[in-house]
């Protein structure tokens, strides 16, 4: 594989959730939930563990690793366990499916 430069004017985030998971992590750190070095340690460990599945390309798979690291951080610190996150994700899924197209999606 070779690397090649990319234009500067491409969107900074490829998907809205990439920006959301990034912002959630920065906000938690700034609010004192964990320090940034604590975050990078967890994230680096996640990246190392995922490297076995083949090289990450730095976009979708990178943010998948970021999300996994944040979920681990939330679990380890007792903020939110995997079951609570899965249940809440199901509630959001149901809310999307129950909301007419074009209207704001809200949890019931």
């Amino acid at each position: 594989m070779t690397l090649r430069p990319t234009p500067e004017d491409t969107p900074r985030f490829d998907a809205p959730w990439h920006a959301q998971v990034f912002a959630l992590t920065v906000a938690l750190s700034e609010a004192g939930a964990f320090t940034w070095p604590e975050w990078t340690e967890t994230f680096a460990a996640t990246l190392r563990a995922r490297g076995g599945d083949g090289p990450l390309d730095g976009s979708e798979d990178y943010y998948m690793a970021w999300l996994a690291a944040l979920e681990e951080m939330a679990r380890a610190r007792g903020f939110a366990g995997p079951d609570a996150v899965a249940d809440m994700a199901d509630r959001w899924r149901a809310a999307y499916l129950a909301t007419p197209h074009g209207e704001p999606v809200k949890l019931s």
């Binding site: 959730w17 959301q20 959630l24 939330a74 939110a80 809440m88």
Partner: peptide
């Protein structure tokens, strides 16, 4: 993954 981020955000 977007729903999981949304879920984390809601809980936090």
């Amino acid at each position: 993954p977007a729903l999981r981020v949304r879920a984390l955000e809601t809980i936090l």
